[in-house]
Amino acid sequence: MEKLKAFVQSRGIGFWVSSVIAVLMLVLAIIYRQCFYWSQYYDARTLIFLIVGLAAGVILMVAGAFFKPLGEWAPAALGAGVFLATLFFFVGSWLMIQDAVGGYEHRGFIAGFWPFVVMAILCIVGSIVNIIFLRQTKQGE
């Protein structure tokens, strides 16, 4: 318990941002699975990159307690995961985007599309800021 308390107290603001991003990535994965899995716009690589990025990020966040430099790579892992997931999200959704923007059927976007896009952008931007400007541990730790 003491060790946990010390761990928490030693975390920098970047760690907490990474935590939020990790939670968002989990939500993204759930949204994607629920809303897209049954549709023709599903691309498995999106989910894979989200999960792998999330897992790597969390492992690095925890490992940072034992070896500080590892923890500093957590935001990069999270950011890479959500960034690559987003790229393949658009690969899978391309037909829907084409239709919604200028296709013959103008059917619009399926539920979950815009929440995914907004949250993904937040995660990517958050990761960039986290990598460049924020520390995962407090200075001096």
């Binding site: 950011g79 890479a80 960034f83 690559l84 790229l87 960039i128 990598i131 460049i132």
Partner: peptide
């Protein structure tokens, strides 16, 4: 970060 993203894209 920028070059990583550019290369990724």
């Amino acid at each position: 970060v920028s070059l990583s993203m550019l290369l990724g894209v």
